[in-house]
C-alpha cells in the first residue's frame, strides 16, 4: 500500500519547481504586474531540455558533472527529509549529518563547475558562494542540534516528529530562535534576497546566477531543477519547525506541509518585494546572526 512517506519524494520531485513559480507570481503581484504563469518554471525546464548545448572550450568533465550532482544530491536528500510528522523514506540516526554532507557535495561541484569556465565573473560567484556557505554551515548544524536537544531525536524523522504544538508551548522561544536561524540559512543557501538577488542584471552583484552563466540546454535545466529541489529540501526543514500541527490522517498532514511550503514561497516573495539585497559585506553578519540565534536556542535548552 502506498503510504505518504512513499509519496512524499515523488510529490517533491513534481512540485518543487512550483515554489519558484509562486515566488515570482507573488513578486509580480506586489509590483502590480501580471507576472509569468505559475507553471513558468516547468515550461522553462521543458524548453531547455529540448535544446542543444554550447560549451566553452575551457571546460572539462567537471563542468558537465556539476549540474548532474546538483540534481542527484537534491533527489537523494528528499529521501531523508521527513514531511508532515511521518518518518522519511529512509530514516536513521545521524542522517542530519548526511543531509549537510549532501548539500556540501553539491556545493563542491557547483563551485568547481563555475571555476571550470575560467571566467572572472563565475570565479567571483564561486568565491562568494564558498564564503557564505562556510558561514551558513555552522548555523544550519547548530540549529538542527538545538532541535535535536529539544526532542532528543538523532535522526531528522524523529526530530521533526516530536516538534508538536506542546513543544512550542513549552519551549517557544528556543524553537522560534532555531526556526529563525533556519529561515536565514534557507534564504542564504537558496540565493534569495536579502543575500542574493535572483533577478539582478549585473554580473558583478550576483552570486548564484553568475555561477551558471555558461550553462545551457539540458545542463541548465538540471541546474534549475537542482536549485528547485534544494529550495524544497531546506524549506521542508523550516516548515517542519513552523507547522507543528498533526492530524490523525497522514495524507492530510502531508497536504498541510505542502501547503505550508507554498505559503513559505509566498512569504519569500513578500520579503523580496519589500526588501533590498544586503551589501555583500553585511551578509557575513547576517549569517553570524543565524549562528547566534542557534547558539542562544541551545543555551536556553541546556538547563
Amino acid at each position: 500500500m502506498i503510504e505518504p512517506r512513499h509519496a512524499a519524494p515523488l510529490l517533491a520531485l513534481a512540485l518543487a519547481p512550483l515554489m519558484t513559480g509562486i515566488i515570482n507570481r507573488t513578486k509580480a503581484f506586489f509590483a502590480g504586474r501580471q507576472g509569468p504563469p505559475l507553471l513558468q518554471a516547468y515550461f522553462d525546464l521543458w524548453k531547455l531540455l529540448r535544446k542543444g548545448a554550447v560549451y566553452s572550450r575551457a571546460t572539462t568533465w567537471v563542468f558537465r558533472a556539476g549540474p548532474m550532482v546538483g540534481v542527484a544530491t537534491g533527489a537523494a536528500a528528499l529521501l531523508i527529509v521527513p514531511l508532515g510528522g511521518e518518518p522519511a523514506l529512509l530514516a536513521f540516526p545521524g542522517d542530519i549529518l548526511l543531509l549537510a554532507g549532501l548539500l556540501a557535495l553539491a556545493r563542491f561541484f557547483i563551485i568547481a563547475a563555475a571555476l571550470d569556465t575560467g571566467s572572472a565573473f563565475e570565479g567571483m560567484g564561486a568565491s562568494r558562494e564558498a564564503q557564505f556557505s562556510a558561514l551558513a554551515e555552522p548555523a544550519l548544524l547548530l540549529s538542527l542540534a538545538a532541535l535535536a536537544r529539544l526532542t532528543g531525536g538523532l535522526s531528522l524523522s524523529d526530530l521533526f516528529r516530536d516538534i508538536t504544538p506542546a513543544a512550542w508551548v513549552e519551549n517557544g522561544p528556543a524553537l522560534a530562535l532555531a526556526a529563525a536561524a533556519l529561515v536565514i540559512v534557507f534564504l542564504a543557501e537558496n540565493a534569495r534576497i536579502p543575500v542574493d538577488d535572483p533577478n539582478t542584471h549585473l554580473e558583478l552583484t550576483m552570486i548564484h546566477e553568475v555561477m551558471v552563466l555558461d550553462h545551457g540546454g539540458p545542463d541548465f535545466a538540471y541546474v534549475l531543477y537542482g536549485a528547485a529541489l534544494k529550495l524544497w529540501v531546506l524549506g521542508a526543514l523550516v516548515i517542519g519547525v513552523l507547522v507543528p500541527w498533526r492530524g490523525p490522517n497522514p495524507w492530510a498532514n502531508l497536504a498541510a506541509v505542502v501547503a505550508g511550503l507554498f505559503v513559505l514561497s509566498v512569504a519569500v516573495g513578500v520579503v523580496e518585494s519589500c526588501m533590498a539585497r544586503l551589501r555583500l559585506l553585511r551578509v557575513p553578519q547576517l549569517l553570524t546572526v543565524a549562528g547566534v540565534f542557534a547558539a542562544l536556542a541551545i543555551i536556553l535548552l541546556r538547563r
Partner: peptide
Amino acid sequence: SVTERGTW
C-alpha cells in the same frame, strides 16, 4: 547541435 566556443 553541440558546439564549443570561448567562455562567455
